[in-house]
């Protein structure tokens, strides 16, 4: 039993060490000459544009459901007029970034993990390396940067659609004009709600790209490992998002709301 615990700890430290090494390799190659601009654009398209519909629908329904769920309770307190403000603050501060990041970790981290994992299994990464090209620069740097750029944009777009969804939800059971709804929703928001929430999505994006690349690039040989890489990329990226969110909330509480 003690031996199992020891093995577990050593593998955790080994994994942490490997991740730090991979991070170092990413940083070193990011500032090296021969940046892969075209591949970065292609990855931004794959990661951003191809996730647009998923995140848009999620955002829209998220706002609508939150509004519909809140109205009956708020009615009891005679505070229905606060629903737009409540939905906008909760979506923009917390629910929007986290939900979109978790959805993207399922879609993007798994896809990166599986893609790089299968490239590893079929020796494409080795082929790149032995040809003298730099696989980290071509495969890893571009994907991590694309995720870091695109996740905040997707989140901002989903947040806006969540407010629109809130407006639709409010109009399903009553009537409120678009202008009034958005006035109430936006008037309640402050810079300290939007800025920290957007900053944390940059870290979420980085975590999704980094974990996806790390798991795929370091997968074992054999077809089974492609599935393992995709699965562990999602699990680890989701875990990192939750942990980073916890840290971000603490930091925001200290610096933004104190």
């Amino acid at each position: 039993m003690e031996q199992e615990a020891k093995f577990s700890w050593s593998s955790i430290f080994e994994e942490a060490g490997n991740q730090v090494g991979f991070m170092g390799s990413f940083v070193r190659n990011m500032f090296r000459g021969g940046f892969e601009g075209n591949e970065l654009i292609r990855q931004c398209y794959n990661i951003g544009y191809k996730s647009f519909s998923l995140t848009a629908i999620t955002g829209l329904i998220l706002g609508m459901v939150m509004t519909l769920q809140s109205i009956p309770t708020m009615k009891q307190f005679g505070a229905v007029s606060f629903v737009p403000a409540m939905v906008s603050i909760s979506v923009i501060r917390e629910i929007g970034p986290v939900i979109i990041a978790l959805i993207c970790s399922g879609k993007i981290a798994s896809s990166i993990g599986a893609e790089l994992g299968s490239m590893k299994v079929t020796e494409q990464i080795d082929a790149m390396e032995v040809s003298g090209a730099n696989p980290i620069q071509y495969l890893v740097v571009t994907r991590i940067i694309a995720c870091t750029f695109m996740i905040p944009l997707l989140t901002l777009m989903a947040d806006a659609l969540a407010l629109l969804g809130g407006y639709i939800g409010a109009n399903l059971g009553g009537h409120i004009s678009l202008l009034l709804y958005f006035n109430k929703a936006i008037a309640s928001l402050q810079f300290s709600d939007i800025f920290p929430a957007t900053i944390k999505t940059i870290f979420f994006g980085f975590a999704i790209g980094f974990i996806g690349c790390y798991k795929g690039y370091n997968s074992n040989r054999g077809t089974e490992s492609v599935g393992v890489a995709a699965n562990s990329a999602v699990v680890n990226a989701s875990l990192w998002i939750i942990v980073l969110d916890g840290i971000a909330v603490q930091l925001t509480s200290i610096f933004a709301y104190s």
Binding site: S118, M119, T122, E123, Q124, D126, A127, M128
Partner: peptide, 8 residues
Amino acid sequence: FQSGALYD
């Protein structure tokens, strides 16, 4: 490489 290892 054994499989050719072409970039998919």
